[in-house]
Design a protein around this nucleic acid. Structure first.
Lengths: 194, 194
DNA sequence: TGATACATGTAACGTGTTACATGATTCA
DNA sequence: TGAATCATGTAACACGTTACATGTATCA
């Protein structure tokens, strides 16, 4: 139940059409939440049906026509409620860690290349965030509202930093491993006794 | 498409029944992948249908009866294929960061309590992981297969460390903020001009 | 025999993903 | 007028979540 609140937040910061939202989700919003245009249109329909947002008046709703949305008071209230409500952290799920664990069982063949690729992606993401920081949060003293936004960006930066370090370490470990990690181990059942 | 591979990995490490798997996913597997028993049973059925796993022979399939599964050669091959295949990182989605960003818009009322709760949860998780590390990976020189498992656990530990630090910092910032973050800002439309 | 824990499931729904469809606008 | 781009959408499916259902074993 977070996508609608991500959209409400984005619309409060600036009323937008579906496609404009999609672009903002790809850019600045992307470092804490991502969404495709299909999700966004689906959700905009729901939110309008629930009376939390509305299309700006004086816009005809034809199919290929731009439609700008803005948040209604009920929408702002719902967002405030949700922000303050207690929520449990999402259970952990990380594909890369799972793959490493799987490699401990079936061997590390072919892993290294993709780890390098991920390292490169995270490095690029990191420098991108650092540029945003330089541009949007110049040294010392941002306005009160900006301190929270800066805090969120810092989390993004620190997480990317963590992943680049961890991946670097992982590659070192991989290289130091005996040639094929665990031996092929053909102990899989062809006719294993009970 | 990761849950089946998480199950294959777990079953290769040790053949298990559905409920045993559920327990292992709650414990040691939980720091890189989580799953409920409903997901696990659903997926075990699929995997068996695809010929990647089978129930250990000499077990009657009654409803309340234990059923142990083991991985077939085709299953091991599929896991090895998946482990080596290139995969893009999952798009970022973090509820806590989203809430902070929302708070920058609708105000920070009620946030602090839940941040403290999260901090406490992450601290507890961290010490739990550290105990696993002390117990399962005694100082220096683990066996080759264990180095990868240790690496995965280190990621879990470092991530929890990051979150406790970040939350501590976030609480400091919150406290330093003017009483209600951004002013109530009743600029929501009642009749806003174009 | 009745309660409790163990063990395996079904059903319904919300969200995320991928592929495709349709109308409007622009410009060569 | 035809291709490319902008903009809004539909459809189908995979996965995760929550609530509930059913059968077995144990033991008071």
């Amino acid at each position: 139940m977070s996508l609608p609140h991500a959209i409400l937040t984005a619309l409060l910061e600036k009323p937008s059409s579906g496609l404009e939202l999609t672009r903002r989700f790809d850019k600045s919003i992307g470092y804490f939440w991502s969404a495709t245009h299909q999700q966004i249109y689906r959700e905009l329909g729901k939110l309008e049906g629930e009376g939390l947002i509305r299309t700006l008046p004086a816009e005809q709703p034809a199919r290929g026509q731009k439609k700008r949305y803005e948040v209604l008071p009920a929408g702002r209230a719902e967002l405030a409620r949700w922000t303050a409500a207690a929520q449990d952290p999402k259970p952990q799920r990380d594909v890369l860690l799972l793959r490493l664990r799987a490699a401990a069982v079936v061997g590390t063949a072919g892993l290294e290349a993709d780890l390098r690729r991920h390292l490169e992606l995270h490095r690029r993401q990191l420098t991108e965030y650092q540029e945003i920081e330089r541009r949007d949060f110049p040294p010392d003293r941002d306005a009160p509202q900006d301190r929270l936004r800066h805090l969120v960006l810092r989390a993004g930066i620190d997480l990317e930093t963590f992943w680049t370090r961890w991946l670097t370490h992982a590659l070192t470990e991989l290289a130091a491993l005996p040639d094929e990690g665990p031996p092929p181990d053909p102990r899989t059942p062809d006719n294993t006794p009970a």
